[in-house]
């Protein structure tokens, strides 16, 4: 059953690759604008071996990891405070809802002047891009915990701290994780854009260099790497989510 499903999922991808290879090899595309899939793979292999790809990827990865973990950690902390304390919610909610809709890249010009063009720039951008949504979803998750469960826990002897630890947080986790999962993919989209515009290293910068050299094979290879990174990040969080929230049944099972 499972192998069958995997097969059906892989089928269109295989077909697309075959079609792509055929179109490129038969020179059906105008000019030299579509390198064949095999050449892209070759270039990918070459870049991996000579270290260009890995060193750039490592830089992007480090930026994403630092910015994302700081941003989401603070976001979760602020979100819990906002969700749990009415006063904190009243105080912070207007600011958060005001700043939340600004696209992360919108901060770029301002940050280039404030932070300067350097390692801190992409990290700050990722931080911002992770912080607001995480704070927002965490606060929502905490606030949406059924008040009757809180009351039940209280009558069973739980102090406010206990209630937070044993009831509110575990129940808010699925919402928090959904937020993190979406943000993890988003962080990669943002880092590439930031690197393309402002910083001469990282996978986004690699794109821009390839563009100036008219190397379609490198651009496509980078795109593939990027797609895999986004996919992996989201999958890791999805996996963690099912591990941590085993009691939440997947849709359609109950």
């Amino acid at each position: 059953m499972r192998t069958q499903r995997t097969f059906y999922g892989a089928l269109p991808i295989i077909m697309l690759i075959v079609l792509w290879e055929a179109v490129a090899r038969l020179k059906l595309a105008p000019g030299n604008f579509l390198p064949p899939f095999s050449l892209v793979l070759e270039e990918l292999f070459y870049m991996t071996v000579n270290g260009v790809l890995l060193s750039n990827l490592a830089r992007s990865l480090a930026r994403v990891m630092i910015g994302f973990s700081l941003g989401s950690a603070l976001g979760i902390a602020v979100g819990i405070m906002m969700g749990y304390s009415r006063v904190m919610h009243e105080l912070l909610n207007p600011i958060i809802s005001f700043l939340y809709p600004i696209p992360a890249l919108g901060w770029l010009p301002l940050l280039m002047l404030w932070v300067g063009v350097g390692e801190m720039l992409p990290i700050t951008i990722i931080f911002i891009c992770s912080f607001f949504p995480t704070a927002y979803t965490t606060a929502t998750g905490v606030r949406n915990v059924d008040k009757r469960l809180v009351r039940a826990a209280e009558t069973l002897g739980a102090s406010p701290k206990n209630v937070l630890k044993t009831v509110v947080l575990p129940l808010a986790l699925p919402t928090i994780f959904t937020g993190l999962r979406l943000e993890a993919g988003m962080a990669w989209r943002v880092i590439v854009a930031a690197e393309m515009v402002a910083i001469p290293t990282g996978i986004g910068a690699l794109f821009m260099q390839a563009e100036s050299l008219i190397r379609m094979d490198i651009i496509i290879a980078c795109l593939m790497v990027l797609a895999i990174m986004c996919f992996l990040f989201e999958r890791i969080f999805q996996y963690l989510e099912t591990k941590v929230c085993r009691w939440v049944k997947p849709y359609g099972q109950g």
Binding site: D146, R148, L149, R151, A152, A153, E154, T155, L156, G157, A158, S159, N162, T166, V167, P170, L171, C245, W247, V248
Partner: peptide, 30 residues
């Protein structure tokens, strides 16, 4: 939390993230 009252709410309010054992044990673990 200090009154030691056993309260069965109309909607039961069982903790969905805990199994039956842990639901019953909740007050004892606290």
């Amino acid at each position: 939390s200090k009154r030691n009252v056993g309260y069965v709410l109309q909607e039961l309010a069982l903790f969905p993230h805990l199994n039956v054992f842990s639901n019953i044990a909740y007050g004892l673990r606290i």
